[in-house]
Nucleic acid binder design. Structure first.
Lengths: 149, 149
DNA sequence: ATACAGCATGTTTTCAAAATCCTGCGAATA
DNA sequence: TATTCGCAGGATTTTGAAAACATGCTGTAT
């Protein structure tokens, strides 16, 4: 569905949304360790999210990353489109170069509907919605629950 | 969504369903030329579809490929799962290794629904359904319409 | 039987995503 | 103001899908 970069980016921004506080940025290494993501690779992904103004970064001691906006105001679609672009929502299902509404491929309409469903889901989900369920213990973003078992 | 191999495989089996007759197999090169697919690469993909008994192949003069079963009895899901496997329908949306119903990631349930939607669509669509619309001129699998314009 | 058309199959090469390596730069603290 | 922490960002290596190459094998027709 998404590239590995995008998956890492989603994990990371969720981790940041969960653990950053106004007085506490979240360090790259902390995210990489907890989410089992190659640190240098994650660095580049977070740079993208900073450039797209989804994250802020602070250098120096006690530096790190935090959300640029409130968690309520960041949707998954913004994160995905920043990293993977909008191509996944436009690409023909069987890879035809000239497939569009005027010259649809055999699965064009069905896939258009499915892609729109995905897009709508990503657009509706904010980081705030998601971390709320994590804080309630209903969902998980880290592997910590595996250690305690 | 799908790998390039899978996209090529879908294009090819649709082409075969459209052009093969009981007395006429469809040659590899014909498919490759009309769909603009690298011939040697397509060869390997069609081998997979033969192995999975979705196609039959005949060697020698006037040889080529034809559907193993009637077009009514082949679904897109069979083609996709033969080439790409079922991983796309099972993989966690944010790439967590240990995401399941018991320990769901924040988007697990939403994505499960979306993946099931895709799976159901692919399961419901048979080759016969799709080539019918092509023969009616409502949809397209080749690039021929581009030449005549 | 022999030639040849056309699929089968193993190997190599290309290319982009993923991962790693290394150096630079800015902010905080002593 | 010197040091160090931690992000920025360029360059390189690795990996696997995609593509290209080369050869073998089988069935048909002459």
């Amino acid at each position: 569905m998404f590239s590995k970069s995008c998956e890492y980016g989603l994990q990371a921004i969720l981790y940041i949304a969960l653990h950053a506080r106004p007085d506490r940025k979240v360090g790259l290494k902390e995210i990489a360790d907890n989410q089992d993501i190659p640190a240098h690779f994650l660095s580049k992904i977070l740079q993208i999210l900073v450039k797209y103004k989804l994250l802020v970064s602070v250098k120096g001691p006690n530096g790190g990353f935090a959300l640029y906006r409130k968690a309520e105001d960041i949707t998954l679609l913004e994160v995905v489109s920043a990293i993977d672009g909008l191509d996944i929502f436009e690409r023909c299902g069987i890879g035809l170069k000239h497939c569009d509404d005027a010259h649809p491929c055999p699965i064009h309409n069905k896939f258009k509907f499915l892609r729109e469903s995905i897009r709508n889901t990503l657009m509706k989900e904010t980081l705030a919605d998601l971390i709320f369920a994590v804080e309630e213990g209903k969902t998980y973003v880290t592997l910590k629950h595996l250690i305690s078992e």
